[in-house]
């Protein structure tokens, strides 16, 4: 079978997409959709896949009465079916200045853009809707979810236009976003999370409270993860206007790594507690590897949930 034609967009890497071709982004929990899709809906509909019976109540359509059950029990039962639906995925891209950092050729922001574009393609490709929100200290750009292929070029353009701005208030944004999304959907956040962790966790909890599937792609540069500085004195200038620090990084590496460990552990634990997917993304690793690993883990989880 000939490969599907893919739009030529800046942040879509055909090689990445090819590697992710056989994978789907599945909602771990039920989502609400407007069309028939591949995800379970919280609504019991009258579709094809039988779910269970419930007693007839006035107002139910007599079409759904199970006459066989009536024949056996002389009671009216209505057949309920499992509804399958699509979801609305919201890609939240942190475009704050700290995302500008990149020790290699690619900054965290650029890496996140590639990830977002790839996911957007996959979501649209599996007939789900995808939207984009670019934010720093405030929401800079919002594209509501759409399932048409054309949304990809709009997202790509929005990604290209996203420029880093100082200050991140992820928590505020998550709260705002939780209120803005009408239906339960899939919220995917790309950020380095250099914010107040407690506030950020509250924002996640808000989203979860509203019934959204939430995934956090914690984008970190290898230098931030491993702090591999040599000897000598370095002056670190904050990208978020935090001033500057002069120190000998080699001498404080241990303390830094310890702080990093605590920071990551705090986020991870908060995400686990809130049933939020947490993915620590090392920007030195290939995007397709990161995404495919995540998608496979999602598929496994979804399968587990269904079996239960």
């Amino acid at each position: 079978m000939a490969p599907k034609p893919r739009p030529k967009l800046k942040y879509l890497d055909s090689q990445v997409l090819q590697n992710l071709d056989s994978l789907d982004l599945v909602a771990r929990e039920v989502v609400e959709g407007v069309r028939v899709g591949m995800h379970r809906s919280p609504l019991r509909g009258f579709s094809t896949e039988f779910a269970h019976h419930r007693p007839y109540v006035p107002g139910d359509s007599v079409r759904h009465l199970d006459w066989r059950v009536y024949g056996r029990t002389e009671r009216y039962y209505v057949k309920l079916y499992e509804a399958e639906t699509n979801f609305d995925a919201h890609l939240l891209l942190d475009a704050s200045a700290s995302m500008r950092f990149g020790s290699g050729g690619l900054s965290k922001l650029e890496y996140a853009k590639f990830m977002a574009a790839s996911l957007a393609y996959m979501i649209v490709d599996q007939r789900d809707s995808v939207g984009l929100a670019v934010f720093d200290s405030q929401l800079r750009r919002y594209l509501p979810p759409r399932s048409a292929m054309g949304v990809l070029s709009i997202i790509d353009e929005a990604l290209a236009q996203a420029v880093p701005e100082p200050r991140t208030d992820i928590a505020g944004l998550l709260h705002e976003f939780a209120g803005r999304i009408p239906r339960r959907g899939f919220v995917i956040l790309f950020s380095d999370l250099f914010d107040h962790v407690d506030e950020f966790i509250k924002g996640l909890d808000h989203l979860r409270f509203r019934g959204h599937n939430v995934a956090v792609f914690h984008v970190m540069d290898p230098y931030e993860l491993r702090f591999p500085f040599g000897g000598g004195t370095w002056r670190f200038e904050g990208l978020e206007l935090e001033g500057e620090i002069t120190t000998q990084p080699k001498r404080i590496r241990a303390a830094y790594l310890e702080e990093l460990r605590k920071f990551l552990q705090q986020i991870r634990k908060a995400c686990e507690r809130s049933h939020v997917d947490y993915v620590l993304v090392d920007t030195s690793r290939p995007i397709d590897v990161v995404l495919s690993a995540y998608l496979i883990s999602r598929i496994h989880q979804a399968a587990g949930t269904r079996n239960r």
């Binding site: 931030e224 200038e237 120190t247 001498r251 404080i252």
Partner: peptide
């Protein structure tokens, strides 16, 4: 005085590490 310069994002982590280590260093 012979310093090298770098833009850095994880300033808060660095600051906390320095608070712990700098005095000892």
């Amino acid at each position: 005085f012979r310093q090298r310069r770098i833009d850095w994002a994880a300033m808060e982590l660095l600051r906390r590490a320095i608070v712990i280590r700098q005095r000892r260093i």
